[in-house]
Protein backbone atom coordinates (compact mmCIF):
# COMPACT_ATOMS: atom_id res chain seq x y z
CA UNK A 1 0.00 0.00 0.00
CA UNK A 2 1.40 3.39 -1.02
CA UNK A 3 1.41 6.29 1.42
CA UNK A 4 2.51 9.89 1.78
CA UNK A 5 3.79 9.62 5.35
CA UNK A 6 7.30 10.77 4.41
CA UNK A 7 6.03 13.89 2.63
CA UNK A 8 3.65 14.78 5.46
CA UNK A 9 6.32 14.14 8.08
CA UNK A 10 8.82 16.36 6.27
CA UNK A 11 6.18 19.08 5.96
CA UNK A 12 5.67 18.93 9.73
CA UNK A 13 9.48 18.85 10.27
CA UNK A 14 9.27 15.73 12.41
CA UNK A 15 12.05 13.12 12.41
CA UNK A 16 11.40 9.41 12.02
CA UNK A 17 12.57 8.94 15.61
CA UNK A 18 10.06 11.48 16.90
CA UNK A 19 7.20 10.02 14.88
CA UNK A 20 8.09 6.54 16.12
CA UNK A 21 8.01 7.77 19.71
CA UNK A 22 4.61 9.41 19.26
CA UNK A 23 3.15 6.34 17.52
CA UNK A 24 4.70 3.95 20.06
CA UNK A 25 6.73 1.92 17.57
CA UNK A 26 10.38 1.44 16.68
CA UNK A 27 12.06 3.74 14.14
CA UNK A 28 12.58 0.80 11.77
CA UNK A 29 8.83 0.39 11.53
CA UNK A 30 8.47 3.99 10.36
CA UNK A 31 11.24 3.39 7.79
CA UNK A 32 9.45 0.33 6.40
CA UNK A 33 6.13 2.17 6.48
CA UNK A 34 7.49 5.08 4.45
CA UNK A 35 8.98 2.67 1.93
CA UNK A 36 5.58 0.99 1.58
CA UNK A 37 7.04 -2.33 2.74
CA UNK A 38 4.78 -2.67 5.75
CA UNK A 39 1.01 -2.30 6.12
CA UNK A 40 0.21 -0.97 9.59
CA UNK A 41 -2.66 -1.98 11.84
CA UNK A 42 -5.66 0.32 12.02
CA UNK A 43 -4.62 1.64 15.44
CA UNK A 44 -1.07 2.43 14.25
CA UNK A 45 -2.40 4.12 11.09
CA UNK A 46 -4.68 6.21 13.29
CA UNK A 47 -1.84 7.19 15.65
CA UNK A 48 0.37 8.23 12.72
CA UNK A 49 -2.46 10.18 11.09
CA UNK A 50 -3.13 11.93 14.39
CA UNK A 51 0.56 12.73 14.90
CA UNK A 52 0.73 14.28 11.43
CA UNK A 53 -2.59 16.16 11.82
CA UNK A 54 -4.01 14.21 8.92
CA UNK A 55 -6.42 11.38 8.25
CA UNK A 56 -5.91 7.71 7.35
CA UNK A 57 -7.65 8.27 3.99
CA UNK A 58 -5.26 11.11 3.19
CA UNK A 59 -2.09 9.28 4.21
CA UNK A 60 -2.70 5.86 2.72
CA UNK A 61 -3.46 5.19 -0.92
CA UNK A 62 -5.15 1.84 -1.43
CA UNK A 63 -4.41 0.12 -4.73
CA UNK A 64 -6.42 -2.90 -5.95
Amino acid sequence: MKNIIKEERQKKKITQEELAKIAGVRRETIVFLEQGKYNPSLSLAYKIAKALDSTIENLFIFEE
Binding site: A20, G24, V25, R26, E28, T29, F32, Y38, P40, S41, L44
Partner: peptide
Protein backbone atom coordinates in the same frame (compact mmCIF):
# COMPACT_ATOMS: atom_id res chain seq x y z
CA UNK B 1 13.49 3.44 27.84
CA UNK B 2 12.97 2.77 24.13
CA UNK B 3 10.37 0.45 22.60
CA UNK B 4 11.71 -3.10 22.41
CA UNK B 5 8.99 -4.71 20.31
CA UNK B 6 6.16 -3.28 18.26
CA UNK B 7 3.39 -4.73 16.10
CA UNK B 8 5.74 -5.31 13.14
CA UNK B 9 8.09 -7.38 15.32
Amino acid sequence: EEILHDERD
